[in-house]
Amino acid sequence: MWLLSDRFKELVRAWWIGYSVVGSTSHCLVEKLKSLKRDLRKWKKEVFGNVYAKKAEALSRIQFWDSKERLNPLSSKEAEARLGDLEEYKKCVLMEETFWRQKSRETWLKEGDKNTKFFHKMANARARKNLLSKVNINGNPLTSAEDIKDGVCRA
């Protein structure tokens, strides 16, 4: 989600270069990571804040402009403001979607390989997708596993 923000990589690079730590390589790495963590937390609060609240605010502003437009046409300045609010809403929706996609992957990494019903469904689906039930070699259809093995080896 943070990568969607403008200049994020440059900001992190500037922070990283700006940290001056003396000591062994591993000590420097640990201290720089701690400092980066603090700066990222502060930056996240300043830049993103509460994405859900921002999304709700943008949606209410869009609804305001829509209700105003039903009564009278919007001026060019008001139409620009509405478009800006619409862009803000789209940005918030994209960040929220990215957050949940990353969260689901994190859950899969933590719990996906446990002996769960979900894991077995995923594994079986993958096995079904990778199964060759029939192969045509030189116009000769082969269906049994042994015939397919022999036919592929001969071809």
Rank of each mutant, 00 (worst) to 15 (best):
K68M: 07
I17A: 11
K42T: 11
W15S: 02
G84R: 10
E88L: 01
R105Q: 14
S67L: 15
E111L: 09
L131D: 13
K134A: 09
A56M: 07
K90Y: 07
A123M: 12
L3G: 06
D39E: 11
T25S: 12
C153P: 08
G139H: 01
A125R: 03
G84N: 05
L83Y: 06
C28V: 02
E78I: 00
S20P: 04
K103N: 13
K37D: 13
E69N: 14
P141T: 01
W16Y: 09
V30M: 04
D147A: 10
L11Q: 15
A125S: 06
K114I: 04
L59E: 14
K134E: 13
L86W: 04
S144R: 03
G151D: 01
L94F: 01
L109N: 15
R154W: 10
L142R: 02
F119D: 05
A58M: 00
S67F: 09
A123L: 08
L59T: 04
L132K: 15
W15T: 00
C28N: 05
W100R: 10
N115H: 07
W15Y: 10
D66T: 14
N115T: 14
G49F: 00
F48N: 04
Q102R: 05
S144K: 03
L132P: 03
A14N: 14
E46F: 08
L4P: 00
R128V: 08
R7H: 15
Y19C: 03
K110E: 12
D85P: 09
W15L: 01
W43A: 02
F118M: 05
L86I: 02
V47Y: 03
L132N: 15
L132I: 14
N130A: 07
K55F: 08
E106F: 08
